Simulated scan of single mutants.
Amino acid sequence: MTAHIEKRLAICWPHFGPYHFARLDALSKALADDWHLCGFETDPSDSTYEWSCEENQNREWTHVKSAPTLVSHSLASYRPTIVFINGWGFPTSRRVWRWCLRNRTPKVLLSDSRASDKKRNRISEWAKSAYVKTFQAAVTAGESHAEYLVSLGMPRHKIHLGLDVVDNQYFSSRRSDHSSNTGHFSQTKDRPYFLGIGRWIKKKDWPLLIRAYATWSSSIDNPPELRLVGGGEMHRELNKMRLKYQLNENLSLVPFQSYATLPNLYQNAIATVLPSREDEQWGLVVNESLAAGTPVIVSTECGCTESLVEHEKTGFIFQAGDEHSLRRMLQKVYFLPSSSRKEVVRLGSSKIDSWGLPRFASAIKESVTTCLLPEG
């Protein structure tokens, strides 16, 4: 009698947070019984996002925390059938990649980079291409992300879409009676507000939003609040802008908030604004806002725009870096008739329904099938 051999998937990521747990929970449930899933934290000390310990607790899949120097040892102990590696920019990703090469283990690239994210260097692109060509498959975000991988040498039929998703049900199931999907954001107890969530770093271009808001809000009576939630290196600069434009009563700079508080923040907002001007590979806040039933205003440079936002249908788009264009969108959305707002929310919710956890699980499973196909 042939012994049962369990097949094993290793998902390697620098540091797991609630988004990753939700995706891997969904994947664990979608996998066939003869597959086992294990997550490897290749850099658990990474503090890019301030996730709490409670948000990072183990859930329904085996979670292995690995210090960078122990990654190879942990993989050798687990003996994965296929390894999923996060991109190429992290030293630990390249360490996992080298382990796979030495052990002839099939590997899948997880990447949401685009050619347009930043100015590319020919030499580094050549090295990146050599790296990408060693993978058996890839899971990426949208079509422009797939096109970039193709330009680096990955065959299109080996690329599967669905990397950047969130737990839509988590955000939609917590809608309050006065959430924005009713079309009456002004009925909430709090003062109406435009919402910006994300790290306070250069690429997000929060100064553009503050300037646009300052000019626009000074032209109307009883303007709504602008609420920026996050933290980071630009805190002092943003605070100086609040003083410069005399926005003490109108601009709130709110520290990083836990995952548990996000649904209410979205649901009570007029709209979520993401003004990024460069290197914004996707923008998961857009997924979250659409799932919560809140309209979005996004720049042309956000990676999710092409996949999720159709102007004046599922959301609103402005030209990245264009203050006048952003002001017009603030004006349009704030004074949007209730019936029009409801329709935008309806279409946005319909769009995001197809970009949820099942899409991620399907993309991973499809990439596994690709890996197991004979070469040639």
Rank of each mutant, 00 (worst) to 15 (best):
S349Y: 02
S172F: 06
I5Y: 03
P91N: 10
K119I: 14
P192V: 00
V285R: 01
V285C: 01
N121D: 13
H178F: 07
L373Q: 14
Q169P: 03
G89T: 14
R94E: 02
W97I: 09
A115L: 14
S307M: 05
M234P: 10
G232H: 07
P337Y: 00
N222V: 04
S367M: 06
I5P: 05
V64C: 09
L326M: 13
E41V: 11
S367Q: 03
P91Y: 12
E54W: 05
G232F: 10
T134F: 05
W216S: 03
L372K: 08
S289N: 05
R341L: 06
S258G: 13
P263Y: 02
F335G: 09
P91F: 00
P80L: 10
S307G: 02
F194R: 06
W51C: 08
R23L: 05
K202W: 15
L247I: 14
A32R: 15
R277A: 06
H4R: 15
A76I: 06
L24R: 01
H157M: 14
A30Y: 02
E366W: 07
V64W: 09
S362N: 09
S45P: 06
S218R: 15
K332M: 10
E60S: 15
S217M: 10
F21N: 15
E147D: 15
V286C: 11
T2D: 09
A76H: 13
A30F: 09
S217E: 07
H145S: 12
S77I: 10
G348C: 02
I352V: 14
E280G: 07
E312P: 00
I297M: 01
F40N: 05
D322R: 09
W13E: 08
K29N: 05
S116W: 08
Q187Y: 00
S111G: 12
R174T: 06
S144W: 07
P155D: 13
K313M: 08
V285T: 14
V96S: 02
V333I: 11
A214V: 07
A115N: 08
L372N: 13
S52G: 08
G142A: 15
S66K: 01
S180G: 04
G89H: 15
E323D: 09
K342D: 04
N250L: 15
H20F: 08
S362H: 14
R359F: 11
A22N: 06
E225R: 15
Q319Y: 03
E323Q: 14
L195E: 03
K244C: 14
T314F: 00
E312F: 00
S354N: 10
G183F: 07
L149T: 07
Q281T: 15
D190F: 05
V132N: 10
N250T: 14
S219I: 11
K365Y: 01
K351R: 13
Y259S: 02
V132M: 03
D112I: 05
E301H: 05
L330N: 01
P223G: 04
S144C: 09
A363C: 12
W200D: 08
T69M: 11
V139P: 02
E280V: 07
T369Q: 08
G230P: 11
L243Y: 12
S45H: 10
Q267D: 07
S66P: 03
V273T: 08
F16E: 12
D177A: 12
P106F: 00
V345I: 04
P155M: 11
P44A: 09
Q281K: 05
R23P: 04
S362T: 15
S218W: 06
A269S: 13
P337Q: 01
R328Q: 13
